[in-house]
């Protein structure tokens, strides 16, 4: 069954300090796609995957959505249930969620609308087939 909705972590709060793999420090609102790509290249354990949003349905829990992703070259189908305000990082677009107004209200993080077809940054462990 899909994982339970994620309680929102603190690091999405505007102004949070994020350390990239090369040690550089950036604010969460200033992160760019290249930051994730370069950090994954430096990391010996992690690999970046492109995860395309295929479906968005209302979740089983209140205030949650069920998002189906097609992950990586193998297009593995992965389904996650998250709160509507949970932000994903979309390649070339930045932070996006199913309810950007709520994300901005809670985190002061400017956010776009997450839509079917958006390609999100996700991670897998290197060496996982």
């Amino acid at each position: 069954s899909p994982s339970s909705p994620v309680v929102l972590p603190p690091f999405f709060m505007r102004g949070s300090i994020i350390q990239l793999a090369d040690g550089e420090l950036k604010r969460v609102e200033d992160l760019k796609t290249e930051d994730f790509i370069q950090s994954a290249e430096i990391s010996s354990e992690l690999k970046i995957d492109s995860s395309t949003v295929e479906r968005i349905d209302s979740g089983q829990s209140p205030n949650a959505v069920l998002i189906q992703f097609s992950v990586g070259e193998l297009k593995a189908q992965v389904c996650v249930e998250v709160l509507v305000e949970y932000p994903f990082f979309v390649f070339g677009q930045g932070w996006s969620s199913c309810c950007p107004d709520r994300t901005t209200q809670l985190f002061e993080l400017s956010c776009a609308k997450l839509c079917v077809g958006d390609v999100c940054v996700s991670l897998t462990l290197r060496g996982l087939r």
Partner: peptide, 25 residues
């Protein structure tokens, strides 16, 4: 005199999801 305040620093990989095929179904 201002009390030193530690600011949390979060690693980059905590911001994006691990989407493993085993999560589906």
């Amino acid at each position: 005199n201002v009390e030193p305040r530690s600011v949390p620093v979060f690693p980059w990989h905590s911001l994006v999801p691990f989407l493993e095929p085993s999560q589906s179904g």
